[in-house]
Design a protein around this nucleic acid. Sequence first.
DNA 1: GTCTATAGCGAGATAGAC
DNA 2: GTCTATCTCGCTATAGAC
Lengths: 182, 182
Amino acid sequence: MARRPSALTREAIVDAATALFAERGYAATGVRDIAAAASTDPALVIRHFGSKELLFLDTMRFSLQEHPIFDAPLEALPHRLVEFVVDLEEPQRGVVVALVGARSEPAIAERLHEIHEQDFVAPLLDRLHGEGAELRARLAAVLVAGLIYGLWVVGDERLLAAGRDELVDRYTALLRPLLLST
Amino acid sequence: MARRPSALTREAIVDAATALFAERGYAATGVRDIAAAASTDPALVIRHFGSKELLFLDTMRFSLQEHPIFDAPLEALPHRLVEFVVDLEEPQRGVVVALVGARSEPAIAERLHEIHEQDFVAPLLDRLHGEGAELRARLAAVLVAGLIYGLWVVGDERLLAAGRDELVDRYTALLRPLLLST
DNA sequence: GTCTATAGCGAGATAGAC
DNA sequence: GTCTATCTCGCTATAGAC
């Protein structure tokens, strides 16, 4: 294969790292694996990103900014949130799982905490007001996180046995009172 | 220190491994660390348990059989379950977190799945009947697991800011309709 | 910028004396 | 049963030729 210009090599490394970290996790993915998948070599990977951990933190991002979930009226929000989780696809699904799995690295634990805070708690807190709004936002975030945990971390596949729509409806019914009442 | 007879050494290894795995996780705990904490040496650890992974699986057990939670009448069950999770102490708390963190080892992922199935889903399923009982049991298990995840994996300490009792009451209110209605 | 070769470390696991 | 010494392997990261 022809030599790539630098920007393309860097991009290939990012793509390979994202896919491999998401698929196998932090510990099980070596710098060698990433280099091979990007058709380059381990030295370049370190040269571009400094270390495996920095590369991990650079690629394992999770942002809800791109999804217009929180634009929905409050009435529709529970359904939208649950749908988002149930329909979550790779690599986003793997990103969360990989971050959870590498939680024993302090910097990675911090990232996981940040994501929970910034992408789940904070947007919910924006939409809730009055007495106990913060607790309700945090409870709702935990509820949503629980579904992620059940589906993608523990891997309870039978949750989907009754059908995707049924699961979405039932879980929405659990979340709704938390967001719509005081 | 005097030399221990075998049974005591084995017990010391189990105690040390339980504490260290629960505190630091699988990857961050070495066989050497365990041996040192048990006042013995790495060779004995392997000799007694075969490998680090087998030792992990031997020590990281989580059983709800000892807790009489599921003896409670159905009406009281939601409150009991939530209380149990919120009041979870070491090393049980660390066991769950360590299992989640080492999920990239297939045998450990399987154990995590087993625990979810046997200690949460199955006892709930025993208590529920009628149409959709299985889905309700699985939803309830996810709800409970979500609280474990939020409190002990992600580490949202502010959930407890309003007070332990308030958290228990609010989360119980979320779980109750799932277990008590059709 | 790129790649070959390897340094340096730490891990889990083992051999064999006592 | 116990422990010292060591083996072997895999990893990240680096040095240096091109």
